[in-house]
């Protein structure tokens, strides 16, 4: 990390990059703060950890046409960048990618729920987090499911932070396959129990790098895709349509789930998409920056056995 910081400082000083986008510690240790700087002296403040919550590619849109921006990206976030590149939204030459060895990302709300106390300190010890020097929590339990079914990226980084990639073990979507075995009413009951808490605050949309539309379908009056209100039906209509828009674009980075103040398991839906695309089309979103967007192409031999 020190080597990378020195290099970033040099690049800023020599004007090779315009600014650096990353995370710095905040007053809540379970949630580092997004920070952007153009000042070489600030570079030392950046930190890389499990408590870096959002996916920084989301912020790139704010720096459009500003020059080359360096940003810290985990593998799933590099894939998100690839999607934005293949959709023509971001140019590769406008970003300087700092590859981050990933250990997964903690959901701060879930951690808060687990410890049920104000969090003053966090310390990572192997597969656990020690909170307030007293309570120990398994990292796995406070991470979105997406971190357990993470897919690889064809790496294309400009610089890399040394360190071991300690991503949680790959579970091959067993949770999704188990869920598939449930009956429709069992499935609906699960979504009723978990998604009914949704307040439609749209934090999951705001934080998503793929949700860059200037007018979102939920803000449309005509057609009125989703009625306003908090009935389970309207909540589910929102999530169904949002997920449809995510097909082949969402890289299962888990940022939406980590942003959700209601601890709604959004990554169950995003992982389901990843699972289906991989199983039935051999498609991994954002694997590289040249792959075509899933819904923007077709093959004659595509899966069609569900059509009579």
């Amino acid at each position: 990390m020190e080597k990378v910081k020195e290099e970033l400082k040099r690049l800023l000083q020599e004007g090779e990059i315009k600014g650096v986008l990353g995370f710095v510690p905040s007053s809540s240790p379970q949630k580092n703060r997004v920070f952007y700087t153009e000042n070489p002296d600030d570079v030392s403040r950046f930190t890389v950890s499990l408590f870096n919550t959002p996916n920084l590619t989301t912020y790139l849109f704010r720096f459009k046409d500003k020059g080359k921006i360096a940003l810290f990206l985990r593998p799933c976030e590099q894939r998100a960048l690839n999607v934005l590149i293949s959709e023509g939204k971001i140019k590769r030459e406008d970003v300087f990618v700092i590859g981050v060895p990933c250990q997964g990302a903690v959901d701060p709300f879930r951690l808060e729920e687990q410890v049920d106390a104000e969090i003053n300190s966090v310390e990572v010890k192997d597969d656990k987090i020690l909170v307030n020097n007293a309570i120990s929590v398994y990292i796995k339990e406070v991470m979105p499911y997406s971190c357990r079914v993470c897919e690889d990226v064809e790496e294309d980084v400009d610089i890399k932070i040394d360190g071991e990639d300690k991503r949680p073990s790959h579970e091959e979507y067993s949770k999704i396959e188990d869920f598939d075995k449930k009956t429709p009413s069992e499935k609906w009951a699960f979504f009723k129990e978990t998604f009914e808490r949704c307040t439609r605050c749209y934090a999951c949309r705001e934080v998503c790098p793929m949700c860059y539309c200037e007018q979102c379908f939920v803000d449309s009056y005509d057609p009125l895709w989703v009625e306003p209100g908090l009935s389970l039906q309207d909540i589910m209509s929102y999530h169904l349509i949002k997920m449809y828009h995510m097909a082949g674009r969402c890289t299962n980075c888990g940022a939406c789930e980590r942003a959700c103040p209601e601890n709604i398991p959004l990554s169950l839906l995003t992982s389901m998409l990843a699972h289906r695309l991989k199983r039935d089309f051999g498609y991994i979103s954002g694997k590289n920056g040249t792959q075509k967007v899933f819904l923007g192409e077709y093959h004659y031999e595509d899966k069609g056995d569900f059509i009579k």
């Binding site: 598939d180 429709p184 169904l240 389901m272 899933f294 077709y298 569900f306 059509i307």
Partner: peptide, 27 residues
């Protein structure tokens, strides 16, 4: 061909959340 991919995604989503698969048919 484009529609086939789109329908596939929506069908999977609909079934995954527990809406009965019988409600949706493509031909």
């Amino acid at each position: 061909y484009f529609a086939r991919r789109r329908f596939y995604i929506m069908k999977e989503l609909i079934e995954f959340v527990g809406i009965e698969p019988e409600r949706l048919t493509f031909s």
